[in-house]
């Protein structure tokens, strides 16, 4: 379905890496971490989590513990990882309701007002990247949470509709509907803010 290239990992390489990870080999875990952690952290970042890197480490620690429950190929493993990540996120959201330590979805009526919502931990990148990220975050924040889940899982997580359906516990049809509404919403926002949000 996707035309994007997928790099590097042959099914055999994944299978043997998974086997090594299962047998407890640290280097294999490191390999898996390198392969997937950027996407997981990006997912948390897109969701506005304050400590995306820490959460990513927690996901992989959980993965280490639960690897015995997994059997599948590389694509399924990717889903598996995002199931854990997404549940971790929901966990965090629940906590936030109590502690307000999480950047929540905030309805916005103007793009300019939402810039600056990016998590503080993102602040070390270059100005352009930062601007881009704030733009992304602002637009993502303008989505409903379940729309945002779908968009980020599809794009940052690089999951298919079916995989996303597994992660969020909805039917593929529901995921497609959320996705379509999200894209229409994004298009409206982008059009309305075309002067401020210059596409590159």
């Amino acid at each position: 379905m996707s035309a994007r290239p997928h790099h590097g990992l042959s099914p055999e390489a994944f299978a043997s890496t998974l086997a090594d990870a299962r047998s407890g080999m640290g280097a294999a875990w490191e390999t898996l971490y390198h392969a997937l952690a950027p996407a997981v952290a990006g997912y948390f970042r897109g969701q506005g989590a304050r400590e995306p890197d820490d959460l990513t480490s927690e996901v992989f620690l959980a993965l280490v513990k639960s690897i015995g429950r997994f059997a599948g190929d590389g694509a399924q493993f990717r889903s598996f990882v995002f199931v854990i990540a997404h549940n971790r996120l929901q966990d965090e959201r629940r906590k936030t309701i109590r502690r307000n330590g999480f950047v929540q979805h905030q309805p916005v009526d103007d793009m300019g007002d939402t810039v600056g919502l990016a998590a503080p931990g993102d602040a070390s990148d270059g100005a352009l990247e930062q601007l881009s990220r704030e733009h992304v975050r602002a637009l993502c924040d303008s989505l409903m949470p379940d729309q945002r889940d779908v968009v980020l899982l599809r794009i940052v997580g690089d999951l298919t509709v079916e995989q996303v359906a597994d992660v969020v516990g909805k039917s593929p049809g529901a995921v497609k509907a959320l996705q379509r509404r999200a894209f229409e919403q994004l298009r409206r926002k982008l059009s309305a803010n075309a002067e401020e949000a210059v596409p590159r």
């Binding site: 043997s16 996407a39 190929d73």
Partner: peptide
């Protein structure tokens, strides 16, 4: 965007076996 072995088939057999 690396997708970790999309399209891989039966890749887990080796891992599970070991």
């Amino acid at each position: 965007k690396l997708t970790f072995g999309i399209g891989a088939a039966a890749a887990a057999s080796g891992g599970a076996g070991s």
